[in-house]
Measured scan of single mutants.
Amino acid sequence: MRKLSDELLIESYFKATEMNLNRDFIELIENEIKRRSLGHIISV
């Protein structure tokens, strides 16, 4: 996760939620978004 750019991480989050991927996977992405202080972009 740390090698993904912020932009790609956010894009991955939206794609994963759109495709209804595994909730655990989405939570991993959400946690990384929060760690990077980007939660305001997706309202996490």
Rank of each mutant, 00 (worst) to 15 (best):
N31H: 10
L38Q: 02
L9A: 01
M19F: 07
L4G: 01
E32A: 02
F14L: 10
T17Q: 14
I33Y: 01
F25H: 06
H40W: 14
L21T: 06
L9N: 00
I10L: 11
N22H: 11
I33H: 00
E32Q: 01
S12Q: 14
E32V: 02
V44A: 14
A16E: 04
A16K: 03
K34I: 11
N31C: 08
I42H: 04
I42M: 05
F14G: 03
L4Y: 09
S5H: 03
N22K: 08
E27P: 02
Y13R: 01
R23Q: 09
T17C: 10
L8M: 12
L4H: 03
H40N: 08
N20D: 08
T17K: 15
E11L: 15
I10H: 02
K15W: 15
E27N: 10
R36C: 00
I29S: 00
N31G: 08
S5A: 05
A16S: 06
S37L: 13
F14K: 11
K34E: 07
S12K: 09
E32P: 00
I42K: 04
A16D: 01
R36D: 00
E32K: 00
F25Q: 07
M1G: 02
G39D: 11
L8A: 15
L4W: 15
L28N: 05
H40V: 06
G39K: 08
N22W: 08
K3P: 03
I41C: 10
Y13V: 01
A16V: 05
I10M: 07
E32W: 02
I29L: 13
E32G: 01
E30S: 09
F14R: 12
I10N: 01
L21M: 12
L21Q: 07
D6K: 04
E18M: 11
N31R: 12
I33P: 00
M19L: 13
E27W: 10
R35L: 06
N20A: 10
A16W: 08
Y13C: 02
F14S: 04
V44K: 13
I41H: 10
K34D: 04
I29Y: 08
V44E: 13
R23W: 09
F25V: 09
E32C: 02
E18F: 09
G39C: 15
M19E: 08
S12E: 12
F14Y: 13
E30C: 11
D24T: 12
D24P: 07
E7A: 13
E18Q: 13
R2D: 11
K34A: 08
N20L: 08
E30R: 13
R36V: 01
Y13H: 02
E11K: 12
E7P: 06
K15M: 12
M1H: 04
L28T: 07
R23S: 09
L21V: 09
S43I: 13
L9R: 01
N20E: 07
D6T: 09
E18Y: 09
T17E: 06
E27R: 12
L4R: 02
L28R: 05
I26G: 01
V44S: 14
F14M: 10
K15D: 04
S5K: 04
D24L: 10
L28E: 08
L28S: 06
D6S: 05
E7S: 10
E7V: 10
F14I: 11
L4E: 02
V44T: 13
L38R: 02
H40F: 12
L9V: 03
N31V: 10
R36E: 00
F25M: 11
L28K: 06
S37D: 09
R2A: 15
N31M: 13
K34S: 06
M19R: 05
T17D: 04
F25Y: 14
A16G: 04
D6Q: 04
R35E: 03
I26H: 02
H40S: 07
I42R: 04
K34C: 07
E18K: 10
S5R: 04
T17V: 15
I29M: 09
E7N: 08
Y13W: 15
E7F: 11
K34M: 12
F25I: 11
S43F: 08
I10A: 03
R35Y: 06
D6N: 12
N20R: 09
V44W: 14
M1Y: 08
L38T: 01
S37W: 08
F25A: 06
I10V: 07
S12F: 15
Y13I: 02
K3C: 10
I42Q: 03
S12Y: 15
S37T: 07
I33L: 15
L38G: 02
F25P: 01
E7I: 10
K34Y: 14
S43L: 12
R35K: 05
S37M: 13
S5C: 06
R35G: 03
H40A: 08
D24R: 10
M1V: 15
L8W: 09
S43K: 13
R36N: 00
L21P: 03
R36M: 01
N22Q: 10
E18R: 12
I29F: 09
N20S: 09
M1K: 02
S43H: 13
N22D: 13
K3N: 15
H40T: 06
R23N: 07
G39P: 05
S43G: 14
E7L: 10
K15Q: 09
L21I: 08
N22Y: 06
L8K: 14
D6W: 07
I10E: 02
I26F: 04
S37E: 09
E11T: 09
K3W: 11
I33F: 05
R23I: 08
M1N: 03
S5T: 11
T17Y: 13
H40P: 05
Y13S: 00
K3G: 14
R36W: 02
R2L: 14
I26D: 01
E11Q: 14
N22L: 07
S12H: 12
G39S: 14
T17P: 03
K34L: 12
L8S: 11
M19H: 07
S37V: 07
H40C: 08
D6Y: 08
N22I: 06
L21H: 06
G39A: 11
R36A: 00
I41Q: 07
I42L: 10
K34T: 08
E30T: 12
Y13E: 00
R35W: 04
S37Y: 11
M1F: 14
F25C: 12
S43R: 12
K3L: 12
L28Y: 04
D24E: 13
L4I: 06
R23K: 11
E27V: 12
I42A: 04
E30W: 15
L9G: 01
L38D: 01
